[in-house]
Design a protein around this nucleic acid. Structure first.
Lengths: 147, 147
DNA sequence: ATAGACCTTGACGCTCACGTCAAGGCAAGG
DNA sequence: CCTTGCCTTGACGTGAGCGTCAAGGTCTAT
């Protein structure tokens, strides 16, 4: 499989695959003409990277998983370093959630106060609708209702 | 007040204030020698920007508030555009919270499965502790308990 | 007069994950 | 032979919000 084929299969670009290689995440056998040659393991590796990226992992964060796969493990998270990375990222996500909750409540306060100061909060309909519904707490698993 | 004084008062740097000016957020009277001169209104403006930035606003998002203040309003959010910006940012925060919730639950799943696949999940203590406690849902207003 | 502390503009650096040329080599079909 | 389509390396651009010199002007104290 050449780089264009792998890119197509993985839904990415050749530039991205070469970039992964430059970062030491992906290595390629070379054909006699200098072209990169990939196999199915490489495809799985790219998929692993993409999955982790969708969780907000940086490329550097995916390294333990890549190393794990390349050392022969069936799954990228069959290694201690990968699990520790999961734990660290989970803590980061929790911290981010906490922070966002604070921001959200600050925003709601500000918005409420600003609306209260608005001169005629009744002639709405056109530009200002409160944008506030009864969900005082954050939208645990629901997107904000769209009007 | 010169730029260094304002920077010190606002807890920022002269570079930042000049950058704000380059972005059209802050304007300064010039003294005869070319030095920038600021007043208390400018200080409040910088403070407004800092507050909004702490909510995750980009500099561009602060523009309505800055314009509002400069047009003579007492508060930066005494204008319709500012309120609409609040509403837009609130929606963004909600979307981000929703997304992070998904990521978190995916991460927890992955971590749980990976731990279940680990050979000896009992000889812990050294490197692997589960990092999972009974909070299955996100940490609504509590930071993750540190061990 | 000179050192030191301020100020000025200008310009490059940084992070991250690539996008986007540029200039050229390789292989197959017509 | 020529076009077409793939491939190669290299290098600059992107966005956000500044940090960090560089080279020089200004003001104050000694």
């Amino acid at each position: 499989m050449r780089i264009g084929d792998l890119a197509k299969r993985a839904g990415t670009t050749t530039r991205t695959l070469r970039f992964y290689e430059s970062q030491g995440l992906l290595t390629a056998r070379r054909a006699s003409n200098g072209y990169r040659e990939y196999n199915d393991d490489d495809f799985r590796l790219v998929k692993e990277i993409q999955t982790l990226q969708s969780f907000g992992f940086s490329l550097d964060d995916t390294r333990p998983f890549v190393d794990c796969l390349r050392s022969g493990h069936e799954a990228g998270d069959d290694c201690v370093d990968s699990i520790e990375t999961y734990q660290r990222k989970l803590a980061e996500v929790d911290a981010c959630l906490t922070r966002l909750d604070e921001v959200r409540s600050n925003l709601v306060s500000k918005l409420t106060e600003a609306l209260a100061r608005q001169p005629n909060p009744c002639e709405v309909g056109d530009r200002i609708a409160t944008g506030l519904d009864d969900t005082t707490s954050e939208p645990v698993n629901a997107a904000p209702r769209h009007r």
